[in-house]
Amino acid sequence: MSGYLTGVLVVLAFNVIAAYAVYLPMAAGQLNLGIAGFMAIGAYGAAFLTNEYGWSMLAAVPVASAAAGLVGLVIGFPVLRTHGIYLALATFALGQVIAAVFLNLEVVGGAAGYTLSAYAGPYVVFAAAIGVVLVMLYLSRTRFALYLTAVKSDPTVADLMGISVRGVQVAAFALGAMVAGFGGAFYALHYNFVEAQHFNVLLSVFTVLYVLFGGAQTVWGPLAGAMFFTLAPEALRFGEQWRYAIFALFIILFMAIRPQGLITTSLFQGFRRRSNEASP
């Protein structure tokens, strides 16, 4: 594999992991604009544990992503009292606060950034992304995924059916945070350098865009969205400068034309119906 191709695929792997971190809460109706903050927790966590305590990657990554999940869990309870726009803003504020905290933490280099000595090669990163996709596919076949949609669709009725709406919401939020932390940990380990400025609002926003572009109705949407936005610019070779402008223009036009996203449930239903008719 050429160095260029490997580099692109590594970026793809990180984008896929991040997209699923946004997708989980979104499936339960939460727009998380602070996902970069949870990535930062994972990244700095893994960096700190491998650097200062000499932990192996195998131990540092789970602990770092669990830490991100734990922060999600603890903060999720009060934050998820809010809904809709308020929740989006609360997560946005949360992301800003987390990044600002790391910016001020001198133990991890503060504004100058933090260099790691442990290294995760490209194949480790690919395996991590594939692992996340497989876990998500598994989850999408369970009742848990069903309840995410139920809670998003009609929380009042879901509650009357006996579903703990709060529990499902907090679980989705915290699991999303954990996945983000997982991706962040590998990000730090692969590039061997973290700086708080990287985990800004735009990182969160772009990730949300992948998911909305791909479609949040099915588990394949985030994968499709992340792949499109990582690979299409490479294939088309826009000038580096124009890349984000064209990306944004594309998003705007796409949202205007197909607001439900690329891959939808009705799309699958269409396939199923056709195949049923073909083989009765």
Binding site: L31, I85, A88, L209, L212, F247, A248, I252, M255, A256
Partner: peptide, 12 residues
Amino acid sequence: DVPLVSSLGFLV
């Protein structure tokens, strides 16, 4: 979420 995200697209 769609108009909100689309307006973020305008910002970018």
